[in-house]
Amino acid sequence: MASTLSDLRAAQPTVWINPDLSSFQIAQADNDLTKADIDEAEALLIRAAPWLAENFPDTEEGIIESPLMLYGNVWVKLDSHLPISGSIKARGGIYAVLKLAEDLGGTLGDTEWYSKYTITVASTGNLGLSIGIMSAAIGFNVEVHMSRDAREWKKQLLREKGCTVIEHDGDFSAAVEFAREASQHPDTYFIDDENSRDLFLGYAVAARRLKEQLSRNGVEVNAEHPLHVYLPCGVGGGPGGVLFGLKTEFGDNVHGYFVEPTHAPSMLLGMATQMFNEISVADIGLDGRTIADGLAVGRTSAFVGKRMRRLITACVTAHDKTFLQDMRRFHAAHGIFIEPSAAAGFAGHRAFAHLPGTHLVWATGGSTVPEDERADLLAL
């Protein structure tokens, strides 16, 4: 523990092996969610598919899914190219909005009926895009609370979609508090990236889709051929939901590795200290600043961290320059652009590439980044 905290304080790349990893059956004692909950989430997405297909023709007949490709000796799940909002947040964010719309009793397509409600969210960018785009399309009013340091193009895109962007000094946690306070207004609903059951389950649906894709590509997952999955991690909802879903499909034959920036290792810090959201990277002298803006989070989610306590195999941190190098390499090899945060998984893979089995990097965002921004990032 002491050496891990020393490395984190020094912003040095760190590999932390989870001493509390257990069987999925034992881990479920910490979790009030089950496979049946994921079934319900998938069923709602299927019910909404006709409306999604009509309003978002870039979906696969209303199904929000991304390609799987082989990159050398590692598979890459291209959530960077998910339809509608171009990031992994399309899974959880869009499901959460559709779930709220259904719970409120309206009918998709009746924009006037939904216009009496407001959805508010705090976001470093991509969650705000998924919730903002979907909420506005349904007819909700939308407020997205963001740090002033968040990418300007993401704020502008949200405004173009009809969302109100409210900027705050401070980091992501400060924006969360303002969004939470705003939700006290009548007919206002806060989608909480740190504590949302619906976001978590929306992400979890990805697992059964991936299982089908692996099967179509002849990839077996079993005790002799385990699956190692590398997930970029910010507050933890996206990777946590995906890993929970994968565990329900593959049990102990899947291993999850969360990857974070050296300046914002909120999940690793919370897990290693067992303090979860009660400790911030600022408490150990880190500034939380990173080129991987989607991972610029100072404090992990208690909801996710405690559910992941016995599920995560390891956490890895890497320098921004490593994310940028992997982003450029992937672009050079395939002409596919992913964000620096989306390239984080490659650093995790290098740490564990020697392990037998199938290795998969989850690329989490990038297709909505404007061309001039892409050029600037590729030139760094």
Rank of each mutant, 00 (worst) to 15 (best):
A342R: 05
K77D: 03
S80I: 04
G72C: 09
R309A: 12
E61T: 10
V121P: 02
S130R: 00
L21Y: 11
T364S: 13
T164F: 00
E339R: 02
G72T: 09
P261K: 04
A204M: 08
I88T: 07
E42K: 10
K89P: 01
V142F: 01
H228R: 02
Y257D: 03
A351Y: 07
M267P: 07
E212L: 10
N253L: 01
L21F: 11
H349C: 03
I26H: 12
I131P: 03
G93H: 01
D283T: 11
L243D: 02
A332Q: 15
R159M: 13
R151D: 15
F190K: 05
A53Y: 03
A264I: 09
M275K: 13
M308C: 08
A292L: 07
A150N: 14
R309G: 00
L98A: 06
A122I: 10
S85A: 15
V142R: 03
E224H: 01
A296M: 09
A282F: 11
G139L: 09
V144D: 09
I336L: 14
A318H: 11
H354S: 14
Q184A: 07
L286W: 05
V176D: 06
G335V: 12
T124V: 14
E260R: 03
A351R: 14
L231Q: 06
P239V: 02
D169L: 11
Y71F: 12
G366S: 08
E54P: 00
C163V: 14
A137W: 00
A296R: 12
G240V: 07
Q274T: 09
E249P: 05
E177W: 04
R91E: 06
T34K: 10
A207N: 05
R47W: 04
S341M: 09
A11K: 15
A174V: 13
G238V: 08
W362E: 01
V219Q: 14
R159W: 06
T111D: 00
G92Y: 07
P356C: 12
E152D: 13
H331C: 11
G105L: 06
N141W: 01
A53E: 14
M327E: 13
L324F: 03
A137S: 12
E112I: 11
D79F: 06
V361C: 02
G335D: 14
G234M: 09
G236R: 08
T273Y: 08
G365K: 03
R159L: 01
M134S: 11
A101M: 06
I26V: 15
N73V: 01
E42T: 07
T313N: 11
A332Y: 09
V297Y: 03
R148T: 14
P83W: 03
S6R: 14
N18D: 04
T164G: 01
S22F: 10
E177C: 07
L127A: 03
I291C: 04
L355A: 13
F346V: 08
D287W: 10
T248E: 12
I166W: 01
R216A: 11
K211V: 02
F303T: 04
Y95L: 10
